[in-house]
């Protein structure tokens, strides 16, 4: 992928992410036997928030919300521009850092709890993503995203267990049930995003759409050069994680970290080592 394509894709990622979010709300409603909002609902929210009077705690906090959007955008560009996969993963950490520092910078109990849990989310899923980068390198022979996308191998066939692990940790990265401890609307009312309002909340709200693209693109990589399979994988994982979101209750953060560390990571390692042993 050339820089220009990546740049344009990053720019329109906001629109695509909005559609994905709209679709998600419909799918979720249908699964619950409801009609659900229109597809364009996220954009209605977007324009409405534009028009609200903004109230903030202090400027540093509000600015960090805006930076979260820009940081996420930049992280997505790093991923799409075809560079190193590991670097792209760590850029994602960087973008979350803004949300976390913003969440910590106010004296709001919910915000501080949420920011801390946000970090614990990171503790849970980050090792898995690093492992899958190493696994993709093992199969395709390159860390470059562009290389993986043009690879002749299909990593999915070599890494089924790892794919299952990544699929099951998808709710953690997108903060959906059962791993939505950081957001937990019924409990801490959105966590680090609670003190944002108006235009500043808009930044945080849309940054989450971009995270959708980020996560699903990661799923897409598991198909290697086989882009049709990749699209199927993305669609499947989209429905799967919506189903998971609907049928599960929230676990607490210890259970979340324990599930990732004691079940998903060993699953990934078993897959990785078996393939490596088979190849050597």
């Amino acid at each position: 992928m050339s820089y220009w394509e990546a740049f344009i894709l990053t720019l329109i990622s906001l629109v695509i992410g909005g559609f994905i979010y709209g679709l998600e709300r419909i799918v979720r409603a249908r699964m619950q036997g409801r009609v659900g909002p229109p597809l364009l609902q996220p954009f209605y929210d977007f324009f409405k928030l534009m028009d609200k009077r903004s109230i903030i705690i202090h400027s540093f906090h509000a600015f960090m919300g805006v930076m979260y959007l820009i940081g996420t955008w930049f992280a997505l560009f790093v991923l799409l521009s075809g560079g190193d996969l590991l670097i792209a993963i760590f850029f994602h950490v960087l973008s979350l850092a803004f949300l976390v520092v913003g969440g910590f910078s106010v004296r709001s109990p919910y915000s501080v709890i949420g920011a801390m849990r946000e970090l614990l989310h990171m503790v849970a899923y980050e090792p898995l993503y690093v492992l899958s980068a190493a696994a993709l390198y093992l199969v395709t022979g390159t860390f470059q995203v562009s290389g993986i996308l043009h690879s002749n191998h299909t990593p999915l066939f070599y890494l089924p267990l790892l794919f299952v692990a990544v699929l099951l940790s998808l709710p953690a990265i997108l903060k959906k049930s059962p791993f939505d401890t950081a957001e937990a609307h019924q409990e801490i009312i959105g966590g680090p995003e609670i003190e944002y309002s108006g235009k500043f909340y808009e930044a945080v709200y849309t940054a989450k759409w971009i995270e959708y693209i980020y996560a699903f693109f990661f799923i897409f990589l598991f198909a290697g050069g086989n882009h049709i399979l990749g699209a199927l994988l993305v669609i499947f994982s989209f429905f799967f994680f919506n189903l998971l979101d609907n049928v599960t209750a929230r676990v607490n953060f210890r259970q979340m970290v324990a599930f990732h560390w004691y079940i998903l990571i060993p699953l990934a390692v078993i897959n990785l080592m078996l393939i490596a042993l088979w190849r050597s």
């Binding site: 709300r25 409603a29 619950q32 036997g33 409801r34 009609v35 659900g36 909002p37 229109p38 609902q41 209605y44 929210d45 409405k48 609200k52 109230i55 609307h185 019924q186 009312i189 959105g190 609670i194 003190e195 944002y196 309002s197 909340y201």
Partner: peptide, 21 residues
Amino acid sequence: APKYDIERFGALNRGNPKQSD
């Protein structure tokens, strides 16, 4: 809930005054 489903109109129960109308 499903029977009346005001999310049809885009309504969400936010529970957060700073983001509510």
